[in-house]
């Protein structure tokens, strides 16, 4: 065990203050009655009310939600397939190109991904709208999914799958009843990651969307370019709360699962 010194405690405190202070400020000012963001005009929830009556925001939120659901689900299916191919399919022609194509989008600047996809959609004459955004988001999100899932596939004991096959399972049955339950946590976190990435994306969506389907980040972008906006503060607070509740719940659940598993293993050893 390393010693936990004063220096460590200070750097952790300052570090986490830095990470969380802007978000705390945002949350506090979302309850500010004054429209001037810098002057505290008393506690009020009126910006939340205005937000929920702003039809443009609600429409954009609905578009974003649909895009994120469709793109993350497609990305999870394709990304899991890609991970399986990379870890299990052995050698095949063009394998290097394949893994290159999976890893490259992870480090590709958004402006290039967005521009190149837009030029593709124009070249093939696809009308820009929700469909094109879903296609674009699926493409970059599936790479993240496949990285998450392949990490899990690499670490799991292959003999389990082989045993199922020896006992007469078809490959699909073996995948469904043995492999899938084992990699399920990674598939779920891959889906969540894809969903968040899609919700969050501004640049690629701006390039690939049409005039009729504005996503929430695009809407936020056009509002904040003009300066600080109390409605956006309210919206940010809602989004931060959802993420916080989600992350804390999953970490509590996974901790409980780990404890349960340890108990089960102990029981099994005793028996």
């Amino acid at each position: 065990m390393r010693r936990f010194s004063w220096f460590n405690a200070t750097s952790l405190t300052l570090g986490f203050l830095f990470l969380y202070f802007p978000m705390v400020i945002l949350v506090i000012y979302s309850f500010n009655a004054s429209k001037l963001v810098t002057v505290w005009g008393g506690f009020s929830v009126k910006w939340y009310g205005e937000l929920f009556h702003d039809q443009a925001f609600l429409d954009a939120a609905w578009v974003t939600l649909r895009v994120a659901l469709a793109a993350s689900t497609l990305a999870t299916i394709l990304g899991t397939m890609a991970a399986y191919v990379m870890v299990r399919a052995g050698r095949f022609t063009g394998r290097t190109l394949f893994s290159g194509m999976i890893y490259a989008p992870l480090v590709m600047p958004d402006v290039i991904t967005g521009l190149s996809l837009l030029l593709l959609f124009i070249a093939v004459g696809l009308d820009r709208g929700i469909t094109t955004v879903v296609l674009a988001h699926t493409t970059f999100a599936m790479c993240y999914v496949s990285v998450v899932v392949s990490a899990r596939l690499v670490s799991f004991d292959r003999s389990l799958e082989e045993a199922a096959l020896d006992l007469g399972c078809s490959p699909w049955d073996a995948f469904r009843s043995v492999t899938l339950p084992i990699i399920a946590p990674a598939v779920i976190s891959g889906w969540l990651l894809a969903f968040t990435l899609s919700l969050d994306d501004l640049v690629i969506a701006s390039f690939t969307t049409g005039p009729s389907s504005t996503t929430l980040p695009i809407k936020i972008w056009s509002a904040v370019r003009l300066g600080v906006n109390p409605e956006i503060n309210a919206l940010s607070t809602i989004m931060i709360s959802i993420v916080t509740v989600g992350v804390i719940t999953t970490s509590i659940l996974s901790k409980r699962n780990a404890v349960q598993r340890m108990r089960d293993e102990q029981k099994a050893q005793q028996a």
């Binding site: 802007p22 978000m23 945002l26 969050d200 936020i220 972008w221």
Partner: peptide, 11 residues
């Protein structure tokens, strides 16, 4: 959201 975290610094 990355956008919101960057936006927070404007204020």
């Amino acid at each position: 959201s990355f956008l919101i975290r960057i936006y927070a610094w404007m204020g």
